[in-house]
């Protein structure tokens, strides 16, 4: 799939909760408030994975959610970016010893950007988006 400059300026985000404690989700909502206003950069929250360019995943993946996560990822139209928000998604975090984990997110679907923190601040999430844009630009340049 060809990457174009317009993708960076119009990232549509789909938010997927793979079993998080809801802390990260609240921070994502805080990121979308007028105080931070990510719409300045064309970032928009959409309701359907088909419309999305970025998949924002929070939480460790529970056994029940693993298959759903794979399916939602497959439903997205390319080119697509996956962003993990929160420590849970990277290592399991506070839930790492739970009997019910299918593993951190990168064992289920490929991940492009990690935003650590429990829960990460909105500034960190915006930094993650900027990193994602930088990665897209790098891919676009073919480097």
């Amino acid at each position: 799939m060809k990457l174009t400059p317009s993708l960076n300026r119009s990232l549509w985000v789909f938010h997927f909760n793979a079993g998080s404690c809801n802390g990260c989700d609240i921070e994502i909502v805080a990121t979308l408030t007028p105080r931070y206003d990510p719409e300045r950069f064309g970032v928009k929250l959409v309701g359907s994975p088909r419309h999305a360019d970025v998949l924002l995943v929070t939480g460790p993946v529970t056994n029940q959610m693993a298959d759903r996560l794979r399916r939602v990822y497959a439903q997205m139209a390319g080119p697509k970016v996956v962003m993990v928000v929160g420590t849970c998604g990277q290592s399991g975090g506070v839930f790492s010893t739970s009997y019910n984990l299918a593993g951190p997110i990168d064992q289920i679907i490929p991940v492009d950007v990690y935003v650590p923190g429990c829960a990460p601040r909105p500034e960190a999430i915006i930094n993650g988006v900027v990193t994602a844009i930088a990665k897209l630009e790098r891919l676009e340049g073919g480097k």
């Binding site: 799939m1 317009s6 300026r9 119009s10 007028p34 719409e39 300045r40 064309g42 139209a77």
Partner: peptide
């Protein structure tokens, strides 16, 4: 009206350009 900056006026053009470059499932 919601006390924020908002996207540039050209945002819908960018959105459409992006959609045309994406995969159609």
């Amino acid at each position: 009206m919601q006390a924020r900056m908002g996207p540039p006026l050209s945002q819908p053009f960018t959105d459409v350009k992006k959609l045309f470059a994406k995969q159609s499932i």
